[in-house]
Amino acid sequence: MKNLVLTLVTLSFLVNPLSAHAKRVYLEPGDFLSQSFPKTSPDANRLLITGDLKTNLRKVLSGRYSKIRIPYWQSGNKTAWILERIGKERPITAGFVVEGNRIVSFKVLIFRESRGWEIHNEFFTEQFDNAYLKDKQKLSNQVDNITGATMSVDAMKTLARMALLLHAEVISKNSTP
């Protein structure tokens, strides 16, 4: 009995319900861009969120984006986006490369939340490969949840939809005479 109580007391001290908000940089945004455009290094362009794009973006985000002008990098029909969204409390920075209206690369660049960092792993990010927007701006790919990281997972799904929507806008603007 005495031993059991001692073990339980020790275990209770080992349980730590708090963990600090540490900023984890998995890939510097500059490095993400160099990897995305190894042969060319395009300058940043900026897309202004107005009109129909603003309306559609509001639907995807269920609210407004934190900035009015969004930087992007373009080479031919390929665009790269560095976007931010709060999972639970702090913004997660993610990079997307879109080509032919499909996601060709997705990386979690900076993670600032206390939980849910597992989303930077390849087993999660590769679920977005070749994803495109279906009707009503839904994501074509099934993305599995990670227990304990639901809000971070949802944030990344939303950003993927956002990147695809912004890419379509840029390409349609380019093709308009």
């Binding site: 510097e28 945004p29 500059g30 861009l33 300058d43 940043a44 900026r46 934190s66 900035k67 009015i68 002008r69 930087p71 560095i82």
Partner: peptide, 12 residues
């Protein structure tokens, strides 16, 4: 007070 843009070393 609306944030319009933020320029970092990688974005200009």
């Amino acid at each position: 007070g609306e944030v319009i843009d933020q320029l970092f070393d990688y974005s200009g």
